[in-house]
Amino acid sequence: MRGPTLQKATIISFTLHLTVFAIALIIMKQSGNVHLPSPYTVNLVSPGVLKDISRETGADTGKVSTQLAAAPDVSKKAAKETPKDKPKDTAKEKEMVAKRISAIEAKKKVERRVRLRSVIALKAGPGKQGSKQQQSASHGKGALQDDYYTAITKEIWQQWVYPDVGKKDIEAVIAIRILRDGTAIIQRIEKSSGNALFDKSAMRALAKASPLTPPPDEMEIGVRFFP
């Protein structure tokens, strides 16, 4: 009735844990399709890298153009009026504009460099990738996968051309298999948007984006497109 019970229980618990973990590991290694446990779906509506890119390319120009669009005459008018009404302010404004432009340029440069670096790191050979895997081992395997999904999301997005027409509340889901060398093969349309041109534009983006960054292992994923 003394000490041994507690000790025994601890040992039993420990061995039980060990065996369960061992079994789990064996099952995972043997199953072909599932390589790494990913207990979450990755939702990359506005991932960090993508944000940077879109700030640089799409969203920024989009924003500027819509601003210009919304008030193209405002800017013209402002330009016209300022020299007449407030000659003092123009110098200040010009200086401010120049400052802002240079700041934006500097920011872009930095962002471009960061992007280049990340692309180089991703595209580099298996040796480098190995080192990266080791590096991010502390982050866990999920983080590495996250990085990969972010990278390919960006690669597909950059190839996507679709004019701003028609309904906005549609969605197309396409299953693709990504081979070891990055080749993306369209498996099937899991969900059609109901708009043939939209589906086609999505398929095209995938075709043009292939080959993608080589994945850690062959995988099948679903790609959801929203206008």
Binding site: S13, H17, V20, P39, Y149, W157, G222, R224, F226
Partner: peptide, 29 residues
Amino acid sequence: FLLLTVCSLLSAFAEAKVYIDITSPAFTR
């Protein structure tokens, strides 16, 4: 602990397929 392990393993298998979202095309022209 046993339950926890089993649960985490189960969820790993259940959500094996990953979906990525591509929102608003890069080019609209």
